[in-house]
Simulated scan of single mutants.
Amino acid sequence: MTRPVDGIRKLHVAGDLSIHVEERGSGPVLLFVNNFFANVDSWRSRTEELAERFRVVTYDMRNQRNSSIDLGVSWDDHLADLHGLIQDVGSEPVVLVGSSISTMLCRDLLRRYPNVARGAVFVGPAFSPYGGRRRKATVRTWLALLAAGGPAQLFEQLYSTVMSDETVERLGGAGFSGMRAAFVSDHESEPTRANLLSCLDAPDVPQLLQELSCPIQMLVGEADFQWYPSALAEVERLIPDCRTAVLPGVGHLPYMEAPTEFQRVIGDFVDSLAVETTCERLAGGADQVI
């Protein structure tokens, strides 16, 4: 049984626009940032163990299920909403968890406001350590599919790209049909298009990763089409404090295909941040004594 939601609220972000926010659990804050094809429901059953130990905060972006529609939304608007939510959550630095395109939102937020987070988990990042030409070409392909056949046609391409071969075979035709129906129910063409257009303005310069000052946990699937070993090695070179976990037999969305291991990696990462903070405080106290 899914743990009940402890708090639901609407957070005003601009004009008459608001975003839907949910919270479960207590303790250090884990703030999950949706990719453009997820919503708060995507996390509920996949963060159960984390909600036993942490305060899990999830929200729907503009143009997602429970939040306001904004067909003129920009990348900076999404960044401002995320920053506003962090301020609303409280004064303690959070740990961000981004997936796919939202890892780039987390990256840009941490560059602008380096003190808002103790660390971040980048799950199947959409950025590349080499540049953004392929990402932008992929987004334009998605926009073309959406225009031609609506969310159903877009889903067909997404499914074959983000899921591992093993999962596609295991779910079969019935699994595919069920997931497509859910996707179509959750995604309207124009709001989805607006969010996709906004990310075309996101910067793709690899050197931006060098500006990240907090610890970063890379969490990728072994079968992710983008994250082959040399790409991981390059991103580890670029990010000053980078740890990497690769889940075997998993594709672009580890939280869907391996939720238990997904939660274990995140929990271990947050625990390591607590240990490092304690050690820094002890070292600082020792320096004062000396």
Rank of each mutant, 00 (worst) to 15 (best):
E166A: 06
D60G: 03
F32T: 02
S68T: 06
R134Q: 12
M256C: 09
P93L: 05
R53A: 13
S18P: 02
L158H: 07
E166K: 07
C242H: 02
L79A: 07
E52W: 07
L105S: 06
L109S: 09
A148M: 10
C214M: 14
R180G: 01
G132M: 11
P240A: 10
C279M: 12
W43K: 00
R133H: 11
C199H: 14
L273M: 07
E169P: 03
I239A: 02
F127H: 09
L30Y: 10
L96F: 13
M1N: 12
D88Q: 06
E222P: 00
F262T: 05
A286C: 13
P151I: 00
D165M: 07
H78V: 08
E222D: 08
A223M: 08
H83L: 13
C242Y: 01
V162T: 02
V123S: 15
R55W: 06
Q210K: 14
A120R: 05
G98I: 08
L171M: 09
A137T: 08
Y113W: 12
S74C: 02
E166V: 00
Y228K: 12
P229N: 01
L110C: 10
I101A: 13
L196F: 11
V29E: 10
D268V: 11
D76L: 09
P203T: 02
L30C: 03
V205N: 14
Y228P: 03
R62A: 05
A51N: 04
G119E: 07
S198N: 03
S230C: 09
P125I: 00
T103Y: 11
L200K: 04
G27C: 03
T192W: 07
Y130K: 10
R44S: 12
S67R: 05
E166Q: 11
I8M: 04
I239H: 11
I19E: 11
D76G: 11
E257I: 02
I266P: 05
G98S: 10
F37R: 14
M61L: 15
S67V: 03
C279S: 11
E23D: 13
A14Y: 12
Q153L: 15
E236P: 00
L158E: 07
V97A: 06
A181C: 04
V5M: 04
D108Q: 14
V97S: 02
G84Q: 05
Q263T: 02
A245M: 10
E234W: 08
S102N: 06
V168F: 01
G173N: 08
V123C: 15
D271A: 15
L247I: 15
